[in-house]
Design a protein around this nucleic acid. Sequence first.
DNA 1: CCTTGACCTGGAGCGCACTCCAGGTTTTAT
DNA 2: ATAAAACCTGGAGTGCGCTCCAGGTCAAGG
Lengths: 141, 141
Amino acid sequence: MSRRTPAQMAAETGLSIDTLRYYERIGLLDPVRREPSGHRSYGDAYVRRVNFLKRVRATGMSIREMQHYVNLFRDGDGTITERREMLEAHREAVRAQINELHETLTLLDTKISGYKRQEAGEGDDTLILRDSTPQQERKTS
Amino acid sequence: MSRRTPAQMAAETGLSIDTLRYYERIGLLDPVRREPSGHRSYGDAYVRRVNFLKRVRATGMSIREMQHYVNLFRDGDGTITERREMLEAHREAVRAQINELHETLTLLDTKISGYKRQEAGEGDDTLILRDSTPQQERKTS
DNA sequence: CCTTGACCTGGAGCGCACTCCAGGTTTTAT
DNA sequence: ATAAAACCTGGAGTGCGCTCCAGGTCAAGG
């Protein structure tokens, strides 16, 4: 498929029609080609651009940074170095996020198995007089 | 250090004083102990709690979900299963994020090396007669 | 035709997660 | 004793990234 209506574009990219229009308004997408009626018609390049934007957005790049990048893009080959540097900076940010996520993963694993142990050990506790099991400190969240 | 002023707490946890107060207001932190003056005094348990909150927050859990979790916590042992399920759900979300980030990482690598090739290939297009001596790196031991 | 639904524009509104402010009290330093 | 710094409260304000709305045009089906 080469040309798409707004609804088709939305379905294909996962962005809402409103968001597509919003991205165009703020310059993340170039002005979209129109039918004689004035209705938008999106070409393949727009799908690729949107997919790229979605990726960097989903990994924490702000709209403002994306605008900067897209502006560099529009300014042509003289900006290639700066673009590369931007992507390298973002790559570092992504790596940092991955590290943070991995650490959180092990934290979650620890807590989950802690809870599992508690669930296993407490099959019959209502009304049981439990002798001096040392009171766990609360708030060990 | 066992008790901290708001400023110390902020320094230690990396959250601003305002955010700490905000977290208390919305119930993410229990009412903090006060000095006779009315000034807050944070104990160690608060540091641990804040560190936990920071982690899950930084990995995409919303304030509302954190409130839910903390409420379960306050409601005691009967909520352990639900808490475990929440953490398991979050763990899945974290795994999904890691996957997304890895994919983005390879995308960025691809684009970056594309740019590098372009930068290398275009050493002589703007009227510059540059003789291409590759820059030798000097080792300073 | 006529209805229904997709689309158009400019601008307002929203939820989130803080962040700041005014106006006051308490603590600390000189 | 006094000035400055730290803290208090309730509430307003902010920036982000959309999302929705009113009021209108355009197009496809019966």
